[in-house]
Design a binder for these strands. Structure first.
Lengths: 137, 137
DNA sequence: AACAGAATTGTACTCATTACAGATTTAAAA
DNA sequence: TTTTAAATCTGTAATGAGTACAATTCTGTT
């Protein structure tokens, strides 16, 4: 069966036309897009798509764990179809976002957390990417 | 000399009346407040204070490394007068934010970052605080 | 086919943050 | 001390991501 459809079903999300399109987009585009970029791109193929649906769907997918919402960009939320544990880097100059292979799952076991019930960890790196760092000589 | 004034000078910030008030507030209130909360509280003592000044000052202080801007809350930016390396926790229920004693400075040395020049790391934990976890029984 | 509930759509709205231009303060020169 | 320019601060208006909501469409079931 379709990988995208199966992914939604695995996370208890009924695979509607729009949900499939958005999930497929995130699985094929590992660019950590904003909701608006997803909307713009999909709107070309699906002219009946509403921006509200994109927001609603991304919220649902995040709640069900089918998608990761990333808060590394102060301006907009970014979305990631890769839910395997990993960290993120963002360039201060060009704003590009890269995956960083850190097993964030290990980070959940922390000293000195008292009685906090931690269930999620986000690690955000900031700095300059290869291109932007070389621009600065 | 005044600790607050010295802190600003150490970070190359000219210690104006407003800047001192905002920096002092952040050093005395380790509650990770929003810009609006800072404004509300200081406005009682300084009725001439402008919200724009609070935003401008927090931006300046962050750029100069005198203050940390925290992105753990999707709604608003939070500010922290403690610039020593540490991580943050936010409760999904009540929204409270706690410091977590993790030496984020160590996290800067990561495998597989390619040629990225990393200069800052943020670690955000999410879950339920002691009070909110017990409410759920 | 008819109905009920779920999903989608479009518009109006909220509200954190920023832009901007005018007023005020600072600090140093004359 | 007065002058002057730069820095800082202020208030209002604008921006723009995200949400509320009510109307519409779709889905699956009797």
């Amino acid at each position: 069966m379709d990988v995208v459809k199966q992914h939604l079903l695995d996370h208890g999300v009924k695979p509607s036309f729009q949900r499939l399109a958005i999930m497929k987009y995130l699985m094929e585009n590992r660019t950590h897009p904003t909701a608006d970029i997803i909307f713009q791109d999909l709107y070309e193929q699906i002219p009946t798509l509403s921006k509200t649906t994109v927001y609603n769907t991304l919220k649902l997918l995040t709640e069900q764990g089918a998608v990761l919402t990333i808060g590394i960009d102060e301006k907009n939320a970014r979305y990631d179809g890769n839910t395997e544990p990993h960290a993120h880097f963002r360039c201060r100059d060009c704003g590009c976002i890269h995956d960083i292979p850190v097993n964030t799952a290990n980070e959940i076991f922390v000293e000195g957390i008292g009685e906090l019930k931690i269930d999620e960890v986000h690690i955000y790196y900031k700095g300059y990417c290869k291109n932007c760092a070389s621009d600065k000589n």
